[in-house]
Structures are given as C-alpha cells and as structure tokens.
C-alpha cells in the first residue's frame, strides 16, 4: 500500500514493495547500478562514499516509528547530495508522522497492512499532513516562519500566503 505525495495531495499508487528493492550493499555491487535502492537506517550517509546519480527511488526505513534516523538521512539526501528523485518511507509509517517526513523530503509512504483503514483512509493521512501550515524552522519543504514575518527575504508569494493565514 503506497501513498505518493504530489502537489500537496496524496494518492494511492501501485509500485514494487520496499522488500523487493535491493539494499545498499546489493545495489553498490550491481553493474550497471539499478535505479532504486533501499538504505538501512544505520548507514550514516554523511560518512559514506555515495553517488545517487542515476537513482530514481531511495527507500528509507522506520523499523519503529520512534526510531528517527531516517529523518536525518532524507534531509542529507536532499540537502547535501541534492537528490531529486522519490524518497519513500517504509516500515512503521503512521499518519501522525507524515508531516515531519514530508518536511524532511519524503515524497512517498509505504504503509503496513491495516494502517490506512484505521487512519481514516487517505483523507486521514491528508488531514495530518495539514495539521500545521506554519513552521518555525526551515525544512526541505516548508518555509521558516522568520522569513514570513515580513522582515527578511520573504518573497511576495510567501507574504501573500502568510496574509491568507492571518485572515
């Protein structure tokens, strides 16, 4: 069960399950390398020789949702490696964390059996994705509030969005 985030909305899509995607070691040994890889959360990307060019999908893992290492991995992929493909969250993925995940650069969410049903369906996930529309700090997604406060470097579009919130 996969949800994909596009244009601020979530849609159900069909795709290969995370478990069928080669893990980091297998992928590195591939010749030529495939377009998808699954990276365990104890791999410290800051310390790895890693070249994501050619990749379209990177799957990151939440063995338990309380284990938050993949948040840092996702941000590192986006902000240090400039990866622009799909980053998928797999494992213990629940609606109360999707906003954090989206803000760190995740763009798809693979849910375990039964999770969608007891989460109010896709709408439930979307609702949680919109729990907040203002953020104190910058993320991969979401402008830092201090830029909206009209003091520093806010674009006209951002100001208008902020004004909409005020109204």
């Amino acid at each position: 069960m996969l949800l994909k985030l596009e244009n601020e909305t979530l849609a159900r899509v069909n795709a290969e399950a995370a478990q069928d995607i080669p893990d980091f070691g297998v992928w590195q040994a591939q010749e030529p390398r495939g377009t998808a890889v699954r990276i365990a959360n104890d791999i410290n990307l800051a310390a790895e020789e890693f070249d994501p060019s050619g990749l379209e999908l990177i799957v990151l893992d939440f063995p338990k949702y309380k284990d938050g290492r993949a948040y840092t991995q996702a941000r590192t992929l986006r902000e240090c490696y400039g990866f622009e493909g799909d980053i998928r969250a797999a494992g213990d993925v629940l609606r109360d964390q999707v906003l954090f995940m989206a803000r760190c650069g995740f763009t798809s969410f693979e849910l375990a059996d039964g999770v969608l049903e007891r989460s109010g369906g896709v709408e439930g996930f979307e609702k949680s994705l919109k729990d907040f529309d203002l953020f104190y700090q910058p993320g991969v997604k979401g402008t830092a509030l201090w830029r909206l406060r009209g003091l520093s470097g806010a674009t006209e579009k951002e100001r208008l969005a902020a004004a909409g919130i005020k109204g």
Binding site: F100, R103, F135, Q137, G139
Partner: peptide, 10 residues
C-alpha cells in the same frame, strides 16, 4: 527553532 523540528522529534 526546536518546536516541531521535523528532523529532531524522534
């Protein structure tokens, strides 16, 4: 900065 920090909440 720390309030609902997306990377550092878990």
């Amino acid at each position: 900065w720390s309030t609902f920090h997306p990377e550092f909440s878990f």
